[in-house]
Write a protein that binds this DNA or RNA. Sequence first.
DNA 1: TGACGCCGGACAGATTATCGAACTAAATTA
DNA 2: TAATTTAGTTCGATAATCTGTCCGGCGTCA
Lengths: 149, 149
Amino acid sequence: MNEGPRRSEMNLGMLCFIPAREMEARVMKAVIAAGFDDITLAQSRVFQRIGSAGTRVTDLAEQARVTKQTATFLIDQLEKAGYVERVPDPRDARARLVRIAARGRAAIEVAMEAEAEVQAEWTRHLGKRDADNLRRILTRLREIADPYR
Amino acid sequence: MNEGPRRSEMNLGMLCFIPAREMEARVMKAVIAAGFDDITLAQSRVFQRIGSAGTRVTDLAEQARVTKQTATFLIDQLEKAGYVERVPDPRDARARLVRIAARGRAAIEVAMEAEAEVQAEWTRHLGKRDADNLRRILTRLREIADPYR
DNA sequence: TGACGCCGGACAGATTATCGAACTAAATTA
DNA sequence: TAATTTAGTTCGATAATCTGTCCGGCGTCA
């Protein structure tokens, strides 16, 4: 009906945004369908960035690009819901490490399965060669586009 | 100090997310620095999707993946701040077209300049060949990852 | 070594973003 | 024409986010 938003000027940022959002939505849908229906998108964006050895609140905030206060707030929810736990950081008495808890691991399993499925779909559409190219180029792009790599 | 979030399992969605967010942040920063300091990220996500002939609230909501209510709310802010205007849709008396207003056009100019600069930076890093590849592959990916293309 | 500034994290309060439900008016369909 | 759908809004509730402030542990350098 409408000729759409300035299509000719579609830039790389927007082009990246579309699959990123699609993946996010698909994974969230699967996770919620699997019974983890008390997790929100904002929470998952912090949750995703927790490393296997635990990650500090400040680091999570930086990587998710929210303030420490917001991260604290979201982690509170995740902790109450049993997805993560806070343990003292042995190397710094000020800090606490946020770690994946049992329920969190269960959710990750579902998420990774959904992720793999979407990726397989995309690979079928693009062909193996271009799917690999895409991953390779994005990984290189990350070198300059991700301050927290 | 932390070995980071499950890096080996980094998926295409996340890889797309990183440059998308970086572009968004850089453009917003430029726009705000140019004096358009009353626009928010959420507003800009709707604003970006307004076509040159005007776009309906419902279409903006769909494309930005928010509810009509949220779109209405954000467009209210944009209208009050002079970035857009609402005009009746001549083809449907129920509908109203959201159109870019003068201040909006001025902001777009700044945004597009910033966009071009970031893209140039990325192209320098990737090389022309891979930058073109990236755009081509993402455009193809959009065929299945964007319900509103 | 100890005083001072910095960092990690949390609390409080305010603002912004988002959603679900319900409503009005216009268009479409049966 | 009556019933149903669609476009947009308003209302109320909840989620997410920010600024400002505070506390206690770290690091440093005089």
